[in-house]
Structure formats: structure tokens, C-alpha cells
């Protein structure tokens, strides 16, 4: 598998969530994603970027364009050094929220992508990696 490009963006403010969505949209278009695939990965990015900001206190996102044989994909790695997630299994449950949301963020996002990986340690931070293939 080859990494064709690798950008990094800061997520510090509300406006950065919008910038993240726009960057992901642009990269997914470059990868030849159809409209539905674009919308899914952009929506997934928006969910996780907002989590990074609200729960992680801000962080970064890396956007990687991938090629694997004839397949093209987009991988996003969100990282923060926030409080971490104490109970990952619970956080992944539909309807679970510690904030004001609907609790659809993590579980819903997982359904929008092909690969979903969550690493978190209380006191150290959270890293969420999502990948969508064309």
C-alpha cells in the first residue's frame, strides 16, 4: 500500500472543523470518490473532528491519500492529548453520550467508513483512524 500524500491540519477552533471537512472533500475528489463516498467520508470527518475539539480539547488530523493495487482510499488520523476515553466499549455504543449530542457520533461514524480504529488512554489522549476505500 502506498501513501500518495500526507497533509496535517490543526483542529483548535470551530472554523477548523469546517476547514477539515473542506480538505477531506478536496482529497476525496482527487482520489476519484463518487458523491456518496465523498459525503460519507466528509461526514465521518466532521463527526470525529468535532469530538477532537469538544472532548479532546483540540488536536490534529492527518489526511492521507492511499493506493493499494487498483484501489484508492483516504485515511484520516485524528489525534488529541485530551482526557482520553475511559470506557471505549461504552463510547462506541449507539446512544451513549457524555456531552449534549445524540450519541451517534462514534458508532455512526464507524458505519460510514470501511476501517475504524480507536486508541485511547485515560490521561494521555485519543487517536481515531478511519479509512474509506473507493
Amino acid at each position: 500500500m502506498n501513501v500518495l500524500s500526507d497533509d496535517s491540519l490543526e483542529i483548535r477552533r470551530d472554523a477548523d472543523v469546517v476547514a477539515c471537512r473542506q480538505a477531506v472533500r478536496a482529497r476525496s475528489v482527487e482520489q476519484g470518490f463518487g458523491l456518496v463516498d465523498q459525503t460519507k467520508i466528509v461526514t465521518a470527518a466532521s463527526e470525529i473532528a468535532r469530538n477532537t475539539l469538544q472532548y479532546g480539547g483540540g488536536g490534529t488530523v492527518r489526511i492521507q491519500k492511499l493506493a493499494d493495487g487498483s484501489k484508492q482510499g483516504l485515511r484520516l488520523v485524528f489525534e488529541d492529548r485530551g482526557p482520553g476515553i475511559a470506557d471505549i466499549a461504552r463510547a462506541m455504543t449507539d446512544g451513549f453520550t457524555t456531552g449534549s449530542g445524540l450519541g451517534k457520533g462514534l458508532s455512526g461514524t464507524k458505519r460510514l467508513v470501511n476501517e475504524f480504529d480507536l486508541w485511547s488512554k485515560p490521561g494521555e489522549g485519543t487517536r481515531i483512524t478511519i479509512t474509506r476505500w473507493k
Partner: peptide, 14 residues
């Protein structure tokens, strides 16, 4: 609502 948005929204669980 755009069709791609509707598809995504339902998969997201809303």
C-alpha cells in the same frame, strides 16, 4: 436534501 446526504444521514443513524 441531496440524495447523498440522505443516504449518509440514515447510515449515520439519524
Amino acid at each position: 436534501m441531496q440524495p447523498a446526504v440522505a443516504i449518509t444521514l440514515v447510515e449515520l443513524g439519524l
